[in-house]
């Protein structure tokens, strides 16, 4: 698809020329510390940990979108399918140098999956054998919040959630993204 190739080229170009880089291990270790701190603070209540990660991601997403728009210099996406390509080939590329695969579209083009075959946030992670983590913790849940926050700032209300994770012993790490609605401008922007 033309959009996919264009997006891939844009992602590569921005990554090569407009992105300051750091060693991935710094991010892996920092994120690992976040999750580990949350598990300790919430006494291994993984539902709470997931929620907190989502919230953090939402905060990040709302600011990250500006950085994304500035670096990629790209206009509004024509439709949700284009949005998906931008997320995977440009968004994830210019921040984490990964390009999750876009797949599993529903017939109405409102829902798709992102398949992660690499994930710098989860390197060397093994979920504890406490009988619950494998069923309850979504280690990379911050991604869901980031997508939600970022897209909300460009007038899209979405829902994102993981449906499988190799850390849980599943075959793939898959995030399901659903477009709920486009947010119409109801009022003129408020200066706060």
């Amino acid at each position: 698809m033309a959009t996919s190739q264009k997006a891939a080229r844009l992602g590569e170009e921005v990554w090569k020329t407009r992105v300051d880089k750091v060693n991935a291990e710094l991010v892996t270790l920092t994120y690992g510390t976040i999750v580990s701190q949350l598990c300790a603070d919430y006494d291994n209540d993984y539902a709470q940990v997931n929620q907190q990660l989502d919230k953090m991601g939402y905060n990040i997403g709302m600011r990250l979108i500006e950085d994304f728009l500035a670096k990629s210099n790209t206009g509004r996406c024509g439709n949700f399918r284009d949005t998906a390509e931008m997320i995977s080939k440009v968004g994830f590329k210019i921040f984490l140098n990964i390009t999750p695969t876009v797949t599993n579209w529903t017939a109405d083009n409102k829902q798709f999956s992102l398949l992660f075959d690499e994930n710098p946030l989860a390197d060397f992670v093994e979920l504890p054998d406490d009988g619950r983590a494998q069923d309850e913790l979504w280690f990379s849940n911050i991604f869901c919040g980031i997508l939600r926050g970022a897209l909300e700032m460009v007038q899209m209300s979405i829902e994102a959630r993981f449906v499988s994770d190799v850390l849980r012993g599943n075959d793939v790490t898959e995030m399901r993204v659903t477009l709920i609605r486009y947010i119409e401008d109801e009022m003129p922007p408020d200066d706060e």
């Binding site: 990554w15 750091v22 060693n23 991935a24 991010v27 976040i34 950085d67 984490l96």
Partner: peptide, 22 residues
């Protein structure tokens, strides 16, 4: 070999959340 890279922004965003959360 530890040669993989990510964006500096990724670290900046994560780190500022570490501070905010704490």
């Amino acid at each position: 070999r530890g040669r993989q890279e990510v964006s500096l922004s990724a670290f900046a965003f994560l780190f500022s959340e570490v501070v905010q959360y704490n």
